[in-house]
Design a protein around this nucleic acid. Structure first.
Lengths: 125, 125
DNA sequence: ATAACTGTTATATATATAGTATAACAGTTA
DNA sequence: TAACTGTTATACTATATATATAACAGTTAT
């Protein structure tokens, strides 16, 4: 599994780790019940503190994406696809809400937004 | 001009002030060359520190939305509509980028997104 | 000139978040 | 027992946010 973090990102490191792992789960790079890297290994690979990785893992566990057992390590929770889908749907809805808020308090039209969306989405899918 | 801030917001107070003022400019509540509230008055009204208001005004000036003269106060810059429009367009594009990123790394389809958009947008406009 | 407004600058303080570093402790497995 | 796992606690640094206060400086009208 490749986890890429950037210190120039506006996102905190632990947040980037969370997102990368969620992405890996969603794209099936990390499958159900598969082991995640140990916090020490990942910390060493990314050259960051163990505590930062632990924070990411702790939050992923609280959110139901992984399960951690003391002494063994962390695995991907079963039945998390619906969870992820719901979470991502909520994220998309938040973005759309923001877009609509901007649109309605400005002279940017619905059509303009749809055009940009189509353009940025590209041909595929 | 009504500026509403919330301490329970995840956004910092100075950021909320910036957004409220931009919104007021966009909706013509604050017109070109119109005076903004003095930093002391606004701070008193919102029951926050003068420095927090100053920070908001300083950034609005750096971004070109207002102009401040020592001893006189701040006014809305002329020709900021294109500026605001561009900024809001960029904001919308960022949101769309995020939506597309999520969409393409998940099983959420373009059609689903468009349906949610239509639903949330409502009938008007 | 003075009063009463404006903004400016500097200083000190408090709090929260993010991140690091280290060490000691504890569970698992071969 | 060795070599992995995660856990907890502590201390420290840096940054962002926000407050409070005071002194300084420009503008305007009387």
């Amino acid at each position: 599994m490749d986890i890429i973090i950037s210190n120039s990102s506006n996102q905190p490191v632990f947040e980037q780790i969370k997102q990368e792992i969620k992405k890996a789960i969603m794209t099936d790079v990390l499958k159900e019940n598969e082991m995640l890297p140990s916090i020490r290994n990942l910390a060493q690979d990314l050259r960051i503190s163990v505590m930062t990785v632990k924070k990411a893992y702790d939050e992923l566990e609280k959110e139901g994406f992984i399960e951690t057992v003391h002494g063994k390590g962390s695995i991907v929770s079963a039945k998390n696809m619906e969870l992820l889908r719901e979470e991502q749907m909520k994220e998309i809805e938040k973005c759309i809400d923001k877009i609509i808020l901007i649109s309605k308090s400005s002279n940017i039209t619905k059509k303009e937004i749809l055009d940009i969306f189509e353009y940025l989405y590209g041909e595929d899918k």
